[in-house]
Design a protein around this nucleic acid. Sequence first.
DNA 1: ACGGTCAATGTAATCGTTATCATAGCCCGA
DNA 2: TCGGGCTATGATAACGATTACATTGACCGT
Lengths: 353, 353
Amino acid sequence: MDTNDQGSSAAAPRPTVQDVARALGVSTATVSRALSGSPNVSTATREKVMRGAAQLGYQPNVLARALRQERSSLVGLVVPDVRSDFFAAASSVLQRALEEHGFRLILGITGDDPDADRDYLVTLLQHRAEGIVHVPCTDEGAAPLLGGVPTPPPVVEFLRQSRSNVADTVVSNEREGARQLAEHLIAFGHRRLAVLAGPDRFSTTRDRVGGFVDGADAHGLEVEVRYGLYDHDWTHRETLTLMAGDAETRPTALFAAGNRLVSGALQALSELGLRVPADVSLVGADDPDWFRGCTPSVTTFAAPLEQMGLVAAQTLLGRMRPKGRQPRVGPIHALLGGQLIVRGSSGPPAAGA
Amino acid sequence: MDTNDQGSSAAAPRPTVQDVARALGVSTATVSRALSGSPNVSTATREKVMRGAAQLGYQPNVLARALRQERSSLVGLVVPDVRSDFFAAASSVLQRALEEHGFRLILGITGDDPDADRDYLVTLLQHRAEGIVHVPCTDEGAAPLLGGVPTPPPVVEFLRQSRSNVADTVVSNEREGARQLAEHLIAFGHRRLAVLAGPDRFSTTRDRVGGFVDGADAHGLEVEVRYGLYDHDWTHRETLTLMAGDAETRPTALFAAGNRLVSGALQALSELGLRVPADVSLVGADDPDWFRGCTPSVTTFAAPLEQMGLVAAQTLLGRMRPKGRQPRVGPIHALLGGQLIVRGSSGPPAAGA
DNA sequence: ACGGTCAATGTAATCGTTATCATAGCCCGA
DNA sequence: TCGGGCTATGATAACGATTACATTGACCGT
């Protein structure tokens, strides 16, 4: 059973349609037709071909097929990071949805580096990807690159949006969510609010911060905002300094605007001996499973990631293989609402504070 | 600036080498040579071609290139789930390492469904992937499928290993890690131990459970083992029933053998009003950031995921494009050691228990 | 001045598939 | 019986790149 050994002595080439055709005494056209389920093949021939192909271990070369048909069946997915639940969950849904329609996913991870982002988009063009799901990490998005190319593939901006208003976008209403979180905290009586946020070049960051500030503003409150990285360790350090002041002046409520930030903040608060929510309330964004497992569990605003993945897939599919002559339609912007989930990490401020 | 609009009126085809050649009055061979950096092109010509190509927005069709050169530059990555840190972190490293060598990643997500797994491997064969990184979800792995195909691509089994001893494997020593966790708990004085584990068809599960049981066995202790799913909700429910007994008989220490399981267990313990580690100690596996943020932070055994990704990439690269005539070498099995990380969730059992 | 080397380019075959067109049989109605 | 419309099949030209081979000058030493 050591069939998977790496290379028999002569490195036999993979069989091709030619090989199958020759072995069965038919033409390559017949083989191709039989395997692709064309109606113009007799049942007898079809079965003969199927058997022959299986016997030789034939697997069609989809590169050749793609070349001939001018359709690669590839979709590019360009994300900053698969380690964050926010992207991972969404990618997962997208992958399923696209697979169902016969597309394969090429994965690019940019680490939010604009060069890597650009390189990856180029690669996708070269692979003749039929569509691209893009989580942009710059304000321009893919527009400048795709501008120079004839008939570029359709792009859906996902989770974040660039400022060039040319691509379809599928994003959640993070602004509204953050506003609700602010309202929620203020209703408890909090007055000194702070936000720990990622880099402000991402629309997600700007929306979360903006919404939270708006919510506070409506009640005449100021918010201390600290921009940084989407990173556990950064938030950990930043929270330590932010909460170092004495109980009368430091914030009584914290918004960690991303799931990676929540864990960093929690660690810092725990190290400072501050109890949540007795000493300080903490609210987050996104909703990974572990928000429920924490003690206390984390109040948060959750985007409908599953639904967003589906909508993105649908949007892209609509652009990729339009049936018939569809009217040309401008960029579609889907803004999906999320859900405020109140759990144990938010509560009234301490009496003395 | 609406360059990215979806299709100008005539759907201009993408330019090819032919177009570039014609536009410049040279042959396609010259264009190809110039762009691929062949030494046999005059500097003047090279620059002319570069400019012309850029001007037309030419992007080489890598499908055609792959067909001609018989090398796709694609590597398949087949994982059960990208939402788990365990896989996400490893995938991330792998992606970087392989990109550096000019390979692109095709991503398959199987959801631990053997059929999806098989389908995905077939797809990779059809794309002429030059190598496959496989997290198998069955004991056979990829062997039965690849057995029928001439010169199959090299496969590295990653994180889990199948029982067919034909592929290279890169796994962590989960067995030893689990043994250490058992020792750790027993040293505190725990006598009633339980394990919540994923499905036992995965080598990871078997190793973790096996190691833990071995560790207990060395001290003449029994372990209650519950197999289930790698899933927050399953663990949540299971922990509720497992810990329902009274304080004299229920386990005093719990091993949640996977990061998804830890969050489920924590939630259940919290709902039962059991304090960690005062009433019950909890130890986990893997080490996502949030293990540090939890209250208490989670004691765990962490595999060196970064390193494993690198080793897997190296192993695969060694098989894919061997320089010169390398001696044919049998399957390589890399077993990497991890680290016991003691944090706040483990401690001595309650005095009365 | 002549053959030879070498650099620069062109010509055309090739990779494996699909699709177009042509052809050969076959059935059926007029 | 003949021709029109099937159906099943074969021969072959694409798809867009790379590359082995052929060709053209230019240059150089004798």
